[in-house]
Simulated assay, not measured.
Amino acid sequence: MAEALYVIKVGGNVIDNPALLDRFLADFAQVKGHKVLIHGGGKIATRIGDKLGIESKYVDGRRITDAATIDVVTMVYGGLVNKQVVAKLQSLQCNAIGLTGADANIIPAVKRPVKTIDYGFVGDVEPSKLNVAPLKAMLEAGLTPVFAPLTHDGNSQILNTNADTIASSLATALSAHYTVRLIYCFEKRGVLRDANDDNAVINLIDREIYQQLLADGVLSDGILPKLENAFSAIESGVNEVLIGHANDVLPNTTGAVAGTLIR
């Protein structure tokens, strides 16, 4: 049987809250075996952009990444946030290495084509072109890769790319070599039947249950992309996907399920 690998994405309010992030990283550092971390950092990028006089623009909750904004997110995601996370993990005896999709050509992407909306320098991952050989070599060498949500187009252009999608894409590509559990960590305890009730966790969702939840109008808009990424990953070879609270990352890497398991 293939070795276990945990591909873990942390985002939401956890990245923006130093106390929550410190707790999460302390737990993440204790996760045994092979692991990969993917982080966001949108609110920090917005704050830094504001200080620089660069206004953040959104359409339907998605950031428009113009020429000024791609510079900001590259600095914030690939520099400030990524290196702070790596330095913290090093202090916890977790030998982390900070990466973007451009490093070792691991995640090539294409600039999102303009349809009704021009999202600017936003990258769509091409799963068939992921280059995980260098990533596998890092894992086998005992390193813990930490990815910022940035990719590249092969022609020197950095692209802003959804961190959930990067996590799903990496988990899928690595499932050819490992038994992968993809874990999305955020500030909620899982997928909730009632968005206002943190205790209303749906413990298990399969495609049939998912379709019923959609028909019943139970799911909030914010969770839908995570679920679509989850099912896409499972249908492409990932063993399991789990959506849960950042504080539960340790039990969720030791065989338990604290949150919502997607199968």
Rank of each mutant, 00 (worst) to 15 (best):
G101D: 05
D124W: 04
T100L: 02
V132H: 05
K136Q: 13
C94R: 11
F147E: 01
T116K: 13
K111R: 10
V122G: 06
V85D: 02
D118K: 15
K136H: 12
D118A: 11
A87M: 13
Y119G: 09
L130S: 00
M138N: 03
S128P: 11
L139R: 05
A137M: 07
H152P: 04
V122T: 11
P145W: 00
Q84D: 15
A102M: 11
V85C: 01
R112T: 12
A96F: 02
T116D: 15
P134Q: 06
G142L: 07
R112F: 11
P108T: 09
K136T: 13
V125I: 10
V146E: 02
D118L: 13
A137W: 12
K88S: 10
L130C: 02
G98Y: 11
R112H: 13
K88A: 10
I117G: 10
Y119K: 03
K136G: 07
A102V: 09
M138A: 08
A96Y: 01
N131E: 10
L143Y: 11
K115E: 11
Q93W: 15
T144W: 01
I107M: 06
D124A: 08
L130F: 05
K136A: 08
I106S: 08
D103G: 01
A148P: 01
K136L: 11
A87I: 09
L135H: 06
A109K: 02
A96G: 05
L130N: 01
G98N: 05
P134N: 06
L99S: 04
V110A: 10
G120I: 07
K88I: 11
P149T: 07
V122W: 02
P134V: 07
P145D: 00
A87T: 14
G101E: 03
D103E: 00
S91H: 09
T100I: 09
G142D: 13
T144Q: 01
G98R: 06
K83Y: 07
N105Y: 08
I117V: 14
V146L: 01
F121A: 06
Q84I: 10
Q93I: 13
V125A: 08
V114Q: 10
P145Y: 00
F147H: 02
N95A: 14
A87W: 13
L135C: 05
Y119F: 12
C94Y: 08
Q90V: 12
L143W: 12
T151Q: 07
K115V: 14
